[in-house]
Design a protein around this nucleic acid. Structure first.
Lengths: 254, 254
DNA sequence: TCAAAAGTGTTACTATTACACCCATGA
DNA sequence: TCATGGGTGTAATAGTAACACTTTTGA
């Protein structure tokens, strides 16, 4: 994980947080027909990591996830799903974390709480690329978007976490997500064409879909509202514009 | 969770385990056309709980799950899946745990590690009802089977955990499990009729299935091997007996 | 020989795929 | 008017559901 820490919280105690337990986030955005995720880059180290955080002593696990996500993206009401908990011993290598802290001017003791073993609960989120304002945490330089197909090397087991998040997202696409009519809303603009929606599906699934079948299937789900057609694009028939029906969805997190 | 503890491990330290993190198990068995799960009953308290355990400092999370499961059931090589991590503050009520310890003759201090907040990683397992030898842990009297449709009141949020485990099992049935040809093997005897298999499916899903469609679908999966028909049952045509093909399955846990 | 339960065949229905065709648009 | 891309129609296919019919068995 990485960190949302005020200076005093980097103290050896870390007392306000549950020990040994962290959160890691795979935050998906969609821009220019590419799936992207947010990564932190640590100052003077060339190390990249997933955004992460810790759980306060008096805070529900899922509430902590929402809080940290809001801190990293400045967004609330985000589609957020817990997908797996990672607890291998090998996942936690102290060397990168020590390098990160030393580059930050902190010389941790050998038993500093940040250098101990962590078990990490993985969440994936779907957010609006255009609305998010990524904010680095106190140990990192930048919090920026990277294309899923061109990720830098990540610390610890973060690549595995990304992999598993993507698998879960793909599996959810065909089942769970059809229950939440608006799951895709943050990944697209408010109003979009059927081609936009299809490109999103194709990018997530990593495979092409048949145009007319896709259109019929989406319309048959009854989750789209067709608006006046316009879209002043190129020299061709102007497509309809759609938006998601505002409906009685259950909340995303369980 | 409940506990796999030698007497010295109930000491205030609990040092050998990761603090604040537990495992809870929903262990499914199938007997007399009923889905059952293993529950622990605590001595002199009338309290029931899911089997559980803790993670050693030098142990992988999933390895800890296999170890604890083996301790409770005397079985290894079990189909085991992690399905959710439960971290609400409200889930942990100290009163029942204190009652359990006091009934056992232990008077814990207020900050005893077992009375603090726990986050719990949920696993579900499928095991052979006839081969398991349920073993209570050091704080409980009995470890026995209860029908899923007639569970006693459980401590903490254990009913929610059972609910979520069942939902996951049902969802997995239609997708993930078809990849593991032998997932159902522990729930049935080595050799079974198609009707046996259908009753298992119907019991898990909680709904009747069409006989001939079910048969065709199962056979089309190519995971069953038909043996000589016998089954000296009643006054009717003797059904074929089947077994699962021994094949090149991937291991269950990821 | 009859009732019960199992295996198989047939038809209907549904969903998906693949392809064709037409429509609207702006250069 | 023509190339481009979008909407809709249709046939082929696959999978499932529903039902009928046949087979086997022990009483």
């Amino acid at each position: 994980m990485s960190h949302q820490l005020s200076p005093e919280e980097v103290s050896p105690a870390g007392v306000d947080f549950l020990p040994g337990l962290a959160l890691d986030f795979v935050i998906f955005g969609f821009h220019q027909n590419q799936l992207k995720i947010l990564l932190l880059e640590y100052r003077n180290t060339g190390l990249f990591a997933l955004p992460g955080g810790f759980i306060r002593q008096n805070e529900n696990l899922n509430d902590a996830a929402r809080r940290v996500l809001a801190e990293r993206t400045s967004l609330t009401d985000i589609f957020l799903e817990q997908f797996y908990t990672f607890g291998d011993l090998a996942r936690y290598d102290v060397a990168p974390m020590r390098a990160i802290m030393e580059a930050k001017g902190i010389t941790p003791t050998d038993n500093h709480w940040l250098l101990r073993r962590f078990v990490s609960v993985g969440y994936y989120a779907l957010i609006d690329f255009t609305k998010a304002v990524p904010i680095p945490d106190s140990l990192s330089d930048t919090c920026t978007w990277y294309e899923l197909t061109a990720l830098p090397t990540l610390i610890q087991d973060h690549r595995l976490i990304v992999q598993k998040a993507l698998e879960t997202l793909r599996a959810d696409l065909d089942q769970k997500l059809t229950g939440f009519n608006q799951w895709a809303a943050p990944l697209l603009s408010d109003i979009f064409t059927m081609a936009d929606l299809q490109r999103l599906y194709e990018t997530i699934l990593g495979q092409p879909l048949h145009r007319s079948s896709f259109q019929r299937k989406m319309l048959s789900l009854g989750i789209l509202e067709r608006l006046d057609k316009k879209y002043g694009g190129g020299a061709h028939k102007a497509p309809y514009l759609y938006r998601f029906k505002t409906d009685t969805n259950p909340g995303p997190i369980e």
